[in-house]
């Protein structure tokens, strides 16, 4: 079943006299359970596409059916509810609330959950919400960092908090705009292995990246240029992030082992 069904999508920005055509006629269909990476040079419209996919922005033209909902008729409140119930966001800059604990950051989508939402009906009680947020943090391996503020966490840990937040409300799919853009290679592997794990458990993920090595962990690569899709093909040799992470850590450990020895002598 298609979760994302886009056709004839255009997004124009009027900047003074100039009309910027960020997206010019785009067709995209994503099935449930896919793991798609969107690639392309800077300015090719990847973020614009993600914003439209995430119901943060409306296309100038075209139709977008999300999990059976035609978004053309939706107003700001419906958009807010779709974001709340159907979509989990992971951003390049993490976008966590500062001075707020990891647990409360993860709880945030449940905070805005409305009565009669699909999936789970009604507002959860406070205790139940906290429990779900705690479980989501445990799943991303941060069960011991519940009360840490973002400033007390590493970039990789912050991004994992963001992923926990994206998952906590059990959305139809996760959108990630350059989630590894601000991370070093070990953290990148941590995040990618987490995404792969989620995808294996059935979560649909659409992710922007400009690194081919990162795209290699996904199942399908969509390439954009000048606001249109120029190629769309499955990943031939899919890599496993968890394995690469172990390999990297082993190498790192032996390196630091050498260093330790050097220091000891």
């Amino acid at each position: 079943m298609a979760i994302i069904e886009m056709s004839g999508i255009k997004r124009h920005y009027q900047v003074g006299e100039v009309l910027v055509r960020a997206i010019r006629g785009l067709e995209l269909s994503v099935e449930s359970g896919e793991f798609v990476s969107v690639m392309g040079p800077s300015g090719s419209g990847k973020s614009t596409l993600m914003n439209i996919l995430g119901c943060l922005d409306k296309p100038t033209e075209g139709s977008y059916v999300l999990d059976g909902i035609d978004t053309r008729a939706a107003g700001p409140d419906e958009f807010a509810d779709i974001r709340n119930q159907k979509i989990g966001f992971v951003f390049q800059g993490f976008n966590l609330l500062a001075r707020t604990s990891a647990l409360e950051n993860v709880e945030l989508p449940l905070f805005y959950r409305r009565e009669g939402g699909p999936g789970r009906g009604g507002r959860g009680r406070k205790g139940e919400q906290l429990e779900r947020a705690r479980k989501a943090l445990e799943e991303v391996g941060l069960g011991g960092r519940l009360d840490h503020k973002p400033s007390q966490l590493s970039g990789g840990q912050q991004q994992r908090v963001a992923i926990a937040r994206a998952m906590v409300a059990d959305p139809a799919f996760i959108l990630a705009d350059e989630p590894t853009g601000n991370l070093d290679s070990e953290m990148t592997l941590e995040v990618m292995s987490l995404f792969q794990e989620l995808n294996e458990r059935g979560k649909t993920i659409v992710m922007v990246t400009h690194e081919p090595e990162v795209a290699a962990y996904t199942k399908r690569v969509v390439t954009m240029r000048d606001g249109a899709i120029v190629s769309d093909r499955p990943v031939a040799e899919r890599r496993r992030a968890a394995e690469d992470l172990r390999a990297w850590q082993a190498e790192h450990a032996s390196l630091s082992g050498v260093k330790d020895e050097a220091r000891a002598s």
């Binding site: 943060l56 807010a80 509810d81 974001r83 966001f89 976008n95 989508p109 805005y112 937040r165």
Partner: peptide, 13 residues
């Protein structure tokens, strides 16, 4: 920024 984050996770206006 906080407002944007809240909106992205589903806060209505």
């Amino acid at each position: 920024r906080e407002i944007g984050i809240r909106m992205s996770v589903g806060a209505r206006r």
